[in-house]
């Protein structure tokens, strides 16, 4: 028969907690994008967030690094609680990398300068050291030969890998991915997912908004299913994909398969 879902409570994690959300609400005008979100993320855990569009997945991860300001509740990242203090916000952003759907590389800078910008400007790493660090990250995502090109000269898949390298160069403790493969042509999705799988296997804590079930099965510890601003269901990939408890989850899965 079906196993008991050990993850049914989203706040229960194994090991140390690195991200903590308690009763988080977020409104855009009259629209409530997040309703009383409670979630703990453990160190080295990989969480995949799924859900229909408008369900609040992106808003959830954008609140964690304060690209959106939550209205109620607490968000604690690596022991620092998000407040309105800009220094506090920047401290959290330094430790939290983010990869966007539209890559958002800086088009006026070369790939190398895109990656060295933040280490040099935020962490005051000397130029030479920053460039070595950047080359290591580019090798990690397997495109060191593109270092001197401009983003506009690269394919979508290469751009997204540069974006991952750019975040990694800040040596973050947590990585947030906001639909990283949704804007890519099908033949380029794999190269980006490969880089993400490698990153997950290296022990990075990751929250990934994606509908790539193959990725979720391969590396996710937990899958979070959201709808209408709420966490509907949490569980292992096997549990969510094969024996979901909730009707909304079942409906959604039947639509994307």
């Amino acid at each position: 028969m079906t196993q008991e879902n050990v993850y049914a409570d989203a706040t229960r994690v194994r090991g140390d907690v690195i991200i903590e959300l308690q009763g988080v609400d977020k409104h855009f005008g009259d629209f409530q994008a997040l309703k009383n979100i409670n979630l703990n993320v453990g160190k080295q855990e990989v969480i995949v967030v799924m859900g229909p569009s408008g369900s609040g997945k992106s808003t959830l991860i954008r609140c964690i690094n304060r690209l959106e300001k939550h209205d109620a509740g607490r968000i604690v990242v690596d022991g620092v609680e998000l407040s309105d203090d800009i220094r506090n916000i920047q401290e959290i952003r330094r430790e939290t990398g983010m990869v966007f759907q539209q890559f958002n590389l800086f088009p006026h800078l070369t790939v190398l300068d895109n990656i060295t910008l933040a280490p040099r400007q935020v962490r005051n790493v000397p130029k030479k050291e920053a460039e070595e660090l950047a080359m290591r990250q580019l090798e990690r995502v397997k495109i060191p030969e593109q270092a001197q090109k401009y983003p506009g000269q690269l394919s979508g898949g290469q751009q997204q890998r540069v974006a991952i390298a750019r975040s990694l160069a800040m040596q973050p403790k947590v990585m947030l991915f906001d639909e990283p493969t949704s804007a890519l042509d099908p033949e380029m999705i794999k190269e980006v997912l490969d880089a993400m799988v490698e990153l997950a296997e290296s022990g990075m804590t990751m929250i990934v908004v994606t509908h790539e079930m193959g990725f979720a099965r391969a590396v996710a510890n937990r899958v979070l299913f959201m709808a209408d601003g709420e966490v509907v269901e949490v569980g292992t990939p096997e549990h969510i994909f094969e024996n979901p408890d909730e009707d909304r989850t079942k409906l959604f899965l039947s639509q994307i398969l």
């Binding site: 690094n65 920047q90 952003r93 990398g97 983010m98 539209q102 958002n104 006026h108 974006a163 800040m170």
Partner: peptide, 26 residues
Amino acid sequence: PKGQTEAGQALGLSPWKVMRLIVLPQ
């Protein structure tokens, strides 16, 4: 695009540096 500012912020750059190094040059 707004994404440029967000990418800069997400990297931990201060608002002034986001403006000076990313938005203004473009």
